[in-house]
Nucleic acid binder design. Structure first.
Lengths: 212, 212, 212, 212
DNA sequence: AATGAATGAGGCTTCATTCAT
DNA sequence: TATGAATGAAGCCTCATTCAT
């Protein structure tokens, strides 16, 4: 039977519409009715695929987040140098948000502040994914590329916080923002802030800008 | 007459309770009925002072935000050196959020993502308040304390984003976090990242940590 | 003291504003708050003069209706001939409604259908006032001016119904209507309909139009 | 399927109950809750069929008014003579109101004075329906049955105003009234008032009463 | 006499969700 | 599998009205 395929297709169709609607209206303002209508599916059908409205919401980021972190992990392996890896990470985040503003809105404006999201699959994927940032920073410290007195979690908070702030501001104001242009300025300041003194070039600070 | 006083007192009483309830439950889950009950006021009375449930929410940050930025502005004047001023700013933010987690929750978990908040008095106060950060950074550039190739808005985004990420994470997980302890590590990385090369001591990097 | 005068003045002021507001908004949509505001009086003050919102409404027509019927009664005495008297009556009604559309609206669009109004002073005045129409018609029958087979109450219903329909339609559509112009056409048909056969001239049919 | 039938049945059931409740209590005093209860339907279900409490009200007269005017139009065609046609029209109106006092109350006590009703389907039906009265009168004038100096709109206002006044008075006082008994006396006066002089018998004045 | 301040009371409406078909 | 149809559950908000001052 083509059933499993059809089911999967329908599910994706619903998820795709839901992403759009939630992104545009927010969780409360979005209605199952509107999602059903746009997905050309009955409201009851949505409940065939998702347990609740919240469950539907929480299912949205699973795929995209998975892809992001898979891609991230893959590329990181190809890159040498912690600073370069951090740059790649930031770049992939920004690229993802740039290319998929609805996904960005769901993450930044809805899920990030939803305590119920904490124990869901989507959140596990994200939490797991950003562990890599810690690993990269620790590698940088171990290799001497980064100062040894920095706290990897703090640095990650700075990186993620910066990304979140920029993306959120862009979403909230609606001003078109070129997120990719901001990657280098960000990584520049970060690496300048955490690189071990005296290091430069390929060892640290991907843009060659250091405070030597 | 005791009128103006009483009114002000009642209003503050309602705002204070509302802050607590909204912080705990979020906007949707919080009910006017619960706020009224806890404030020992009738539901109708709340509508004497605030036009709408959302209007009540938007009124909450006005006072505290005003105080924060007033204090901020005052202290900044007393401090010499852009890096030191940035540190003071971060410190005051963190202190405010540390001392008033309910206010922090309202800002970080509710208002920051509410587009309707954008055109309110509370948002104007905040937007105005954080302009000072730009000014400080520009001063630092002009004085030669900071590198001239940095974008003040980006630096501010990094500072605010970092604060927001840390505070939000703390609120979301519920883990007790000493926010004040994070001030120096943050400002350390930031200043290391943006200080002009060769600078140190009293001119930049308040903690004396530089990448010289 | 000038108290009684002041009180009376205030009361009239409130009534006058209430008439305007009720006429414009209808009973339900009008609010005591709006009336108080426009009358430059506190809401509580309105309750010094009128027991309830409905009581205020019911007080509105008392004065104008009294005047109308007093005037009516006075003029009727000066006129000879039942048909002429009917014409004068219709004329005075139309003139009153023409000159005071707010009063007309209160009567036609609000009070006429309010069962609670039935037992009030205002209604007594009106009910009493329109008894005169019956008297006139009966006089016309007795004098031989009108056919003896007509039912005075029905004729009155026709007269009042016609007036009400025309005034109501004018109020509802908002189209400016010259009510006075309609007096003669109305009385013409009525008298033609009820005049005893063979009568004409000054005895019946004020306009000299008969079906002889 | 029984779907369309069931839906239609439910809708009619709600409309029927709503007619009763609105007629008894008026619009404001009637509650959706009461209508739902009496219709043995949930309140929410009412909103499946009608957009709003007011929308429900405005839907009530559509069917009955449609029937009345359809019937009216049909019978008018069978009758010769404008006066006879007018009589039939009045008769059908009175019969409808006599047989369905709730419908009468909705029309006379609620809708007739509601400006929001003006642009609804129900009002269009009514407005359209009473155009026929104009047509009949014009025919009467053209055929020489009625005087040529009468204004058809005024005559219609007299007819409708008379009906409305009588029905409204009956509804307001609650006195049982035989509306059908009033048809002939009304049409008698009207036709006597508007028939061309000299006419009688089958040409005008259906009851044979003229002012010849 | 006048009113500022407070509230009781209650209805409409919206949706997520369910279930029989 | 798909959905049409039905509803339970709740909450915001509005005002007329009161009463202490």
């Amino acid at each position: 039977m083509a059933n499993p395929k059809k089911i999967e297709k329908r599910k994706k169709q619903i998820l795709s519409v839901a992403e759009k609607v939630f992104a545009k209206k927010g969780f409360q303002e979005a209605t199952i009715s509107e999602i059903a209508e746009q997905a050309k599916v009955s409201e009851a059908s949505i409940y065939e695929y998702f347990t609740t409205k919240q469950g539907l919401l929480f299912s949205i980021p699973i795929e995209a987040a998975g892809e992001l972190f898979d891609k991230s992990e893959f590329h990181i392996k190809l890159i040498r140098g912690a600073a370069n890896k951090l740059r790649a990470t930031i770049y992939l985040f920004m690229m993802t948000y740039q290319e998929n503003p609805d996904f960005a809105a769901i993450i930044m404006l809805i899920l990030k502040h939803n305590k119920n999201f904490l124990e869901t699959e989507g959140h596990h994927i994200i939490r797991n994914g950003i562990k890599n940032i810690i690993v990269i920073i620790e590698e940088g410290i171990d290799s001497g590329e980064f100062r040894s007195d920095i706290d990897p979690h703090l640095i990650r908070s700075m990186i993620l916080g910066t990304i979140e702030h920029i993306v959120t501001t862009s979403l909230m104001t609606g001003h078109p923002t070129n997120l990719l242009e901001m990657v280098d300025p960000i990584i520049d300041v970060i690496t300048a802030g955490i690189c071990a003194k005296g290091l430069s070039g390929s060892n640290c600070c991907p843009l060659g800008i250091t405070n030597q």
